[in-house]
Design a protein around this nucleic acid. Structure first.
Lengths: 186, 186
DNA sequence: TGGCTTGTGTACCGATCGGTAAAGTGTTAT
DNA sequence: ATAACACTTTACCGATCGGTACACAAGCCA
């Protein structure tokens, strides 16, 4: 039978968008099937654990992307200030300048959080530590770096929420600009 | 037949908590029935429009509470700086120091936003304008007040998201402290 | 050629979904 | 007393939910 998808990994971006748009509860198998073009048989072939396994796979893929494009650069690049600036650009692109929501943050808000608590916490913890590390290398002391990192992540999440609420993606971009100026200024 | 609830308004806080915990899609009528102690018949007696009317009523009640306890004080109190400080305290209490999520923000994130777009936008717009007005009276120029208000609302929403994600209510309290120092300092 | 693996399509499951209908119970006003 | 109203209870509706079972089709390897 002609296969409809090259590999399981190709499904993850689509699944991610579906979960972003409808939430975990709201993303029904019929919606998922329609968006992926796969029937239940195929979906359960790739994800025997059902919706929960799909969401966990998506979260793992997101974590991998951030590891590669955000966390690692923050850790490794010589020029910490430059790394911070560049990863902020990458964040802006990733969230499509405010038109895309953070799935990890969205899942954190309601009771489905409990299903994914470890991954949610791990994602933000890794991000916070990577950013704080870069801030230290850029000249901040340990304490202020930690505070600044925490403040930055909250500002990003809040910017995404507000951009959606006001239906104004530019709001998120303005938030990113403010974050940038605050992080580069010592 | 013995009535189980004095008036419709008494249901709204319970409904609010249910929507906060489960989201709009996830809050099933059976959950709602269990939490309110009412059967479907009673629920549809009070809310003929079903879940959607329930959520809209909850949003209206939230808006009313913020009007009375946050927006109006920001507009009316003589001492603007004091009004800002006091409303920040009220916000901290309202969100139970980070243990409670913002329903308006949570609804904004997924596709159920479209159902409530006007109320969501109105809530944040009113808040932003009230805060910006108070900041102007406290000495800020029009432009920086608007920016600062936008930044503040995003920081609050982001603080709530992060506190839930990290399962650390103190994170939200730290965010509120930072907001306070930023708003009182000119 | 023939089996084996990998994926797909279809039919089906019991449970639950949001919502409706209508009878019944209690209170209140006339 | 009785009629009107406000609320509750129960039974029910079709649709959809997440998930399972299984036959079947294609590609690959022996």
């Amino acid at each position: 039978m002609a296969r409809l998808v090259a590999e399981r990994a190709d499904l993850l971006p689509v699944l991610g968008e579906v979960f972003r748009e409808h939430g975990f509860e709201g993303a029904s198998l019929s919606i998922i099937g329609a968006r992926t073009g796969l029937g239940k048989g195929s979906l359960y072939h790739f994800f025997p654990g059902g919706k929960e396994e799909m969401a966990k796979a998506v979260l793992a893929e997101i974590d991998g992307w951030f590891q590669a494009h955000i966390f690692q650069p923050l850790h490794n690049e010589k020029d910490a200030a430059r790394a911070i600036a560049r990863t902020l650009d990458a964040v802006g692109d990733y969230f499509k300048s405010g038109r895309r929501v953070c799935l990890v943050g969205a899942l954190a808000l309601n009771e489905s959080r409990d299903l994914f608590a470890r991954q949610i916490r791990g994602y933000f913890a890794a991000w916070g530590e990577a950013l704080a590390g870069a801030l230290i290398r850029a000249g901040h002391d340990r304490k202020s770096a930690k505070v600044l990192a925490e403040e930055t992540l909250a500002a990003i999440q809040g910017g995404l929420v507000m951009a959606r609420a006001m239906n104004d993606p530019a709001l998120f971009q303005r938030a990113l600009v403010r974050i940038r100026t605050r992080l580069v200024a010592k």
